[in-house]
Design a protein around this nucleic acid. Structure first.
Lengths: 108, 108
DNA sequence: ATCCTACATGTAGTCTCTCTATATGTAGAG
DNA sequence: CTCTACATATAGAGAGACTACATGTAGGAT
């Protein structure tokens, strides 16, 4: 898929994937891929900066950990982030409804 | 609505609105607004350059006309544009399916 | 007469976000 | 030793939408 079209929806994706459990960047990429049935192959160069951005925004809290000799930065959703996720979800519904109504208009 | 999120979907919108009848820029903006129930307020600074781009791409053909003392540039969908529209439609379905599966996962 | 709103198109410059390419490093398998 | 998976990160490019501005006609209201 042309992930360039994700423009503006990446945040929702990241927040959503962290809703039930904290994950680190690499695992987030895998989760995205898995949940979408392989459709979402998001490059690392997109995800890592986006996670930082969301952390700066206060939606995520990151923490370093070392697992099996490898360093990971694990992110969890903050309360603010949870609120933001709810907002992103309703924005997504509005968005698809709006575009959908133009792209596939119902015959009256 | 944050139309910045339209990134990459504007083309589909414009082609779709021109599917059954040629329209000029201003009328396209109104049609978009109307069809979406008021949700899509696309600024002129977005639409006019986009129409030019689609014309350059061969998807649209534009023609000047004067109606009631005012000049209009009316665009119609070319055959290539019609093919592109079909592609945009299926891309849109894939896109929403992918994001949707992450944002609103079905309970298993 | 003048102003305001609707109609109508267009450009310049900015902004945001994603991408590609690159860099760095560990662990474990072959 | 080499290759692959794991893991994070940054610089720079590119795309496309935005704001703000510029220009002009037509018609109704003050």
């Amino acid at each position: 898929m042309n992930t360039n079209a994700l423009h503006g929806h990446m945040d929702a994706l990241l927040l959503s994937v962290l809703e039930h459990e904290p994950l680190h960047g690499y695992a987030i990429i895998e989760a995205l891929q898995e949940r979408s049935g392989g459709a979402l192959a998001v490059p690392t160069g997109t995800v890592y900066p986006a996670l930082r951005r969301l952390e700066r925004a206060g939606y995520l809290a990151g923490e370093w950990a070392t697992v099996g000799g490898r360093k990971r930065r694990t992110y969890r959703l903050t309360d603010t982030g949870r609120t933001a996720l709810a907002g992103e979800r309703s924005a997504w519904r509005e968005f698809t409804a709006a575009i959908g109504s133009v792209l596939e208009p119902r015959p009256r």
